[in-house]
Design a binder for these strands. Structure first.
Lengths: 355, 355
DNA sequence: TTGAAAGCGCTACCAG
DNA sequence: CTGGTAGCGCTTTCAA
């Protein structure tokens, strides 16, 4: 139906190679012939070589896959993920590479297939949970990949761009501890896979499966342990998702206590903003009696407006560097393992504890 | 190097077809054989059929292209575009379809090529300027597409999901006019392609090339013409981009006038927020002497916090419906032309003009 | 239930 | 500068 390269060749009376050259290697034929071929193509309604056939032949696609372990549509809901994507797309557009966003079905077999079937030259994996299965599939396919977290047990050639989660979290916790807070709560998303929203008991941060959350909780713990606050004395909260509403839900009951914590340290800004929402929803008397300091993580744009004290990590740069690492692998493997700086941004959501 | 389906077939001692069936049509061979084949594949490090080869053979890719006429990385900067993408991805993930985000180079020939080379089954075109060239290319390729604006001159089978830009804009302008405002300014992004940021003269809205902006300006004009304000009496402003900063830049000089407009109607929330920024940056005396009402367009999340009066259009639904229209074309062509409702959201940024 | 044959549409090599 | 040849890796009738 649709004309093929062959049809154009026949129409002009040349061979397929020549038509192919007209498109892909203009220097391989006379300008006149090329013009003639292109004209015939337009005539026939031939819109250029079939991309799939070309990719098969060339063994190269011109697209990289972007993998979010969570729901794809969720990625567009999370400001941090969106800024990460902005960075990815900036690097991609500089390289003329397309981005294939691959939605992963909930069932593991389907998710595996989705990764197997993606026609791409490599993957940029946004780590948001357990993605090791995906990395295995990608490895089996012989494709390169870059992640946003160091993969434990991976070789020195594993490329990633990450932050020191633990140290970053510690910086926030030290700030809060220095303000005198001792009765505190840590809030993370999905701290344990199936735990319901709210308080949770854990004997150590090591039990947390999600590496990012684990690192951050451990960092919080480090700082408070250093000032004599035992792990058993902190309230550990888990939210049912990384959203403002989930953050608010997770702390609501705790805030109604007679002696609520004087500070809540959250594993993301989105959760922290939810805590602020819950705080703002209290009646005036309770609010005055029990001021609560809050810290977040990421420093998304909304954090500034809300006056949220948080740990800034460069979202867009993370995406951009990850993509560059994928598209132009550094000769030196060490240069493929990037640790980005973080910075504690102190705003108004943290205040000295009332003595 | 990488094992192929053939290698697996050889290893097991069956034909390629059988291995193929093991992956694509499990019901076509005995479970025992299938298990054996899959085991051999794992053994050899075969990660399943090559997606590109499969696509070529099947004539189907399993991905749709998403086209932004502007910079791809810009799309992640615009809250409205992000929410649109969220809707697109929601529909795509329900269909198990991937999303190919295609960056378009600045030069027309390169952009054309990018569209020609995208390995997809169809396109979802986010209209943000002049995309007719892209629609032509897509049409030549014989691929289906959906746009976010009615294409003038297209047949009745052209699928789109849009809003009535003019009527929507009129609703905002009528509200402002009803508040008594008569000395007003209209602010759009790139009203004329090469005009510098700031005031601009135009004899009619019809001269604006960008259809969305044209429609909105015409709507503003409709409402004010109805209350006796002539087009020549309104200040027309153009911004150098759809960003907060560009919006602020565009109005800054005008606000320093002795008799600035009492209201600014912007073509997007982002621009309107920039106007609010510029307004907030004035000294107290000027601000008190010259209050300025502002309206936006889209109702992005930030608009609510800023108290911006705006016209709401359902961003996510727009993306979702567009994608569904592409993925499951309605039998009735009329059902493929969707006009979404808009709603005027009155907040605090518009007040009666001081008499 | 299995296998042989016939391409999908294109590009790269190499000889002319 | 041009054209023939030989696949890229897979799926799909169709016949056995």
């Amino acid at each position: 139906m649709k004309p093929t390269l062959q049809a154009v060749a026949d129409a002009v009376g040349v061979s397929r190679s020549t038509v192919s050259n007209a498109y892909s290697r203009p220097d391989q034929l006379s300008p006149a012939l090329r013009t003639q071929i292109l004209a015939a193509a337009r005539e026939l309604g031939y819109a250029g070589p079939n991309p799939t056939a070309r990719s098969l032949r060339r063994g190269f696609v011109g697209a990289i896959g972007v993998l979010f372990t969570s729901q794809l549509s969720y990625a567009f809901t999370d400001p941090f993920a969106v800024r990460f994507l902005a960075g990815v797309s900036r690097a991609a557009e500089r390289h003329g590479t397309s981005l294939l966003l691959v939605p992963l079905p909930d069932d593991p077999a389907g998710a595996r297939q989705a990764v197997e079937n993606a026609a791409v030259d490599g993957f940029c994996v946004y780590c948001a949970g357990d993605e090791s299965w995906a990395l295995d599939v990608i490895g089996d396919r012989g494709l390169p990949y870059v992640t946003t977290a160091a993969r434990i047990g991976a070789g020195t050639d594993h490329r990633y761009v990450a932050i020191d989660e633990r140290a970053a979290a510690r910086s926030a916790a030290e700030h809060v501890a220095a303000l005198g807070h001792r009765r505190v709560a840590f809030l993370g998303d999905g701290v344990l896979p199936d735990a319901p929203s709210g308080p949770l008991r854990l004997s150590t941060a090591d039990e947390v499966p999600h590496p990012t959350t684990r690192g951050r909780l451990a960092g919080f713990q480090d700082a408070f342990a250093a000032v004599g606050v035992d792990w058993s004395a902190v309230t550990l909260l888990t939210a049912a998702g990384n959203s403002r509403a989930a953050g608010a839900d997770a702390v609501r009951d705790l805030l109604a206590d007679d002696a609520p914590p004087t500070a809540v340290l959250a594993c993301s800004d989105v959760l922290a903003l939810g805590v602020l929402d819950a705080l703002a929803a209290r009646d005036r008397r309770t609010a005055e009696r029990h001021p609560v300091s809050v810290t977040g993580f990421d420093d998304i744009p909304e954090a500034a407006e809300a006056g949220l004290t948080t740990v800034r990590q460069p979202a867009e740069e993370k995406g951009r560097i990850a993509t560059e690492l994928l598209l132009e692998p550094p000769a030196d493997p060490a240069a493929g393992q990037v640790l980005l700086d973080t910075e504690l941004i102190v705003r108004t959501s943290t205040r000295p504890v009332r003595s």
